[in-house]
Simulated scan of single mutants.
Amino acid sequence: MTTNGTAAHTGMTELPPLVRDALTAARLHRFPYSCRPEQGRLLSVLAGGARGRIGETGTGLGVGLAWLTSGAAPGVRLYSVERDPERARALAAERGWGRLPAHAGCLPQSGSPAPTRAAERHDCPQQRRHYAVGGTATS
């Protein structure tokens, strides 16, 4: 999340449709903490290099997820986690996703150097199964 990241997109006309839609939802729900446009473009480029799956934490109202989706190759699966239930419900309603599954369990602790290390340290098989050998974690 970035302070005023949602507002940083104001006036931009060349945005992927999914990003435009996510920004509309973020503005409607007065969520200012979306990623900035330059961060979104970086996410899109990084997503283009993924071949299996992409995971994101801190979905917010889906702007970063929309950038990732816009850059991902066909067949790449995207997973995202939002710990605020109200925000997750708002995103699901905006996107027409219906009911989202809620999963309790182990998530990386804030400040963990990388999600894979957090999963190993907390012996979290539910989370570890989503990581690929040789994968890349960014923060």
Rank of each mutant, 00 (worst) to 15 (best):
T10N: 12
G11A: 04
G11C: 09
G11R: 02
M12S: 02
L15P: 02
P16H: 10
P17G: 02
P17H: 03
P17T: 02
L18T: 05
V19G: 09
V19S: 11
V19K: 09
R20Q: 15
T24E: 04
T24K: 07
A25E: 08
H29T: 00
H29W: 01
Y33A: 13
C35A: 02
C35S: 00
R36V: 04
P37K: 07
Q39P: 07
Q39C: 04
Q39L: 12
R41I: 11
S44Q: 12
S44F: 10
V45M: 06
L46E: 08
L46V: 13
L46Y: 13
A47M: 06
A47P: 09
A47C: 07
G48W: 08
A50R: 12
R51G: 12
R51D: 14
R51K: 11
G52D: 12
G52K: 14
G52A: 11
R53W: 11
R53K: 13
I54C: 04
I54G: 08
I54K: 12
I54N: 08
G55M: 13
E56C: 00
E56I: 01
E56T: 00
E56N: 03
T57K: 10
T57Y: 14
G58H: 00
G58Q: 01
G60Q: 10
G60V: 07
G60I: 06
L61V: 06
G62K: 02
G62P: 01
L65P: 03
W67H: 09
W67G: 13
L68Q: 10
T69R: 15
S70Y: 15
G71F: 13
A72L: 00
A72C: 01
A73Q: 13
G75S: 13
G75K: 08
V76E: 10
V76D: 15
R77I: 15
S80C: 09
V81P: 06
V81K: 09
E82A: 10
R83G: 07
E86H: 06
E86V: 06
E86F: 05
R87D: 03
R87H: 03
A88R: 00
A88I: 00
A88N: 00
R89M: 01
L91Y: 11
A92Y: 01
A92I: 01
A93W: 03
A93L: 04
A93T: 03
E94S: 11
E94H: 07
R95H: 04
W97S: 01
W97D: 00
G98L: 06
G98A: 07
R99G: 11
A102G: 10
A102S: 10
A102Y: 09
H103M: 13
A104M: 02
G105T: 05
C106W: 06
C106M: 11
L107D: 09
P108L: 05
P108W: 05
P108S: 02
Q109K: 07
S110R: 08
S110I: 06
S112M: 10
S112K: 04
P113C: 03
A114T: 15
P115F: 08
R117Q: 14
A119P: 14
R121S: 10
H122R: 11
Q127V: 14
Q127T: 10
Q127L: 15
